[in-house]
């Protein structure tokens, strides 16, 4: 479903701030894979997601989503294949627009936007049902401005937006990192439910080792813009935090340094 072939990206080339964020990265995802991504500071996790989403062009290599080479496509065109949820709850939604308007924007992802009405009555009824499924009491606040909602509510809505039109690939960039533990657990549970319901191919960055192990069928670890560890199947199911740390040291010859990493 996703093929990243020898992709490199260097920021600020030729300056003192030069940073090779992706270094000949090669990575493939099978249809239906739910892969968690962990790694230290500056390992290239978010850079990989941004490269897939087309936030900027890559220096080398190509990216193929569902058999289509998207390497040259601008960000807004790749959006047709992708669902994205960001770390900052403010990033994923338009604060001054209503919940229904935000969902309607997402429903038209990858489609020509016409001069038809932006949100139809029929859609509103449909969204109300979807929001009721979140169990956050948002179904009664359909036309409320998203800016008035809490971070957790906004992330839940962003998740709904990302999956409203079934994406080929769901990209979750530490989407629970800015939430309190209870809300984070709820959003993760929702993520699991939506991913399994639609059998979505998913890439989820997390700084929580336990979450990385508990969710998905595959786990990769990144360091210096490369993937240094790739665990799946039975091995992943039986994995423990201690084993993972051990494997990391062996694979990288280093200890894991991520000041935000939650080990247990």
């Amino acid at each position: 479903m996703l093929e990243i072939n020898r992709v490199s990206k260097t920021f600020n080339p030729g300056t003192v701030n030069e940073k090779t964020a992706l270094d000949g990265l090669t990575f493939h995802l099978n249809p239906g894979d739910f892969c968690t991504v962990i790694g230290g500071n500056g390992a290239g996790k978010s850079t990989m997601l941004n490269a897939i989403a087309g936030v900027w062009p890559v220096d080398e290599g190509n990216i193929i989503i569902d058999g289509k080479n998207v390497t040259q496509l601008p960000e807004h065109k790749r959006a047709a294949y992708l669902g994205r949820v960001f770390q900052d709850p403010m990033t994923g939604t338009a604060a001054t627009m209503g919940i229904d308007e935000n969902l309607a924007l997402a429903a038209r992802r990858g489609r020509l936007r016409t001069l038809k009405w932006g949100v139809t009555k029929k859609e509103q009824a449909q969204y109300k049902e979807l929001l009721a499924g979140l169990d956050l009491g948002l179904e009664d606040r359909l036309t409320s401005k998203v800016g008035l909602l809490s971070g957790g509510q906004r992330q839940a809505i962003t998740l709904l937006m990302a999956t409203l039109k079934q994406p080929k690939l769901l990209l979750l960039d530490e989407h629970t990192a800015a939430l309190d533990p209870k809300t984070a657990a709820k959003v993760l549970e929702l993520t699991d439910r939506i991913v399994s319901e639609h059998k979505l191919t998913t890439l989820m960055i997390t700084h929580n080792m336990r979450d990385a192990i508990a969710h998905g069928n595959r786990l990769v670890m990144m360091k210096d813009g490369k993937i240094i560890l790739d665990i799946s199947g039975e091995e992943k199911k039986k994995l423990t935090v201690e084993e993972l740390l051990e494997k990391f040291s062996v694979a990288s010859g280093d200890t894991l340094d991520n000041d935000r990493m939650i080990l247990g």
Binding site: A79, T91, A94, L105, R111
Partner: peptide
């Protein structure tokens, strides 16, 4: 309107 409010989100939703 979405472009004016949040351009990052707009591009993620396929808006040029």
């Amino acid at each position: 309107r979405a472009t004016g409010t949040n351009p990052n989100m707009s591009r993620a939703q396929g808006i040029n």
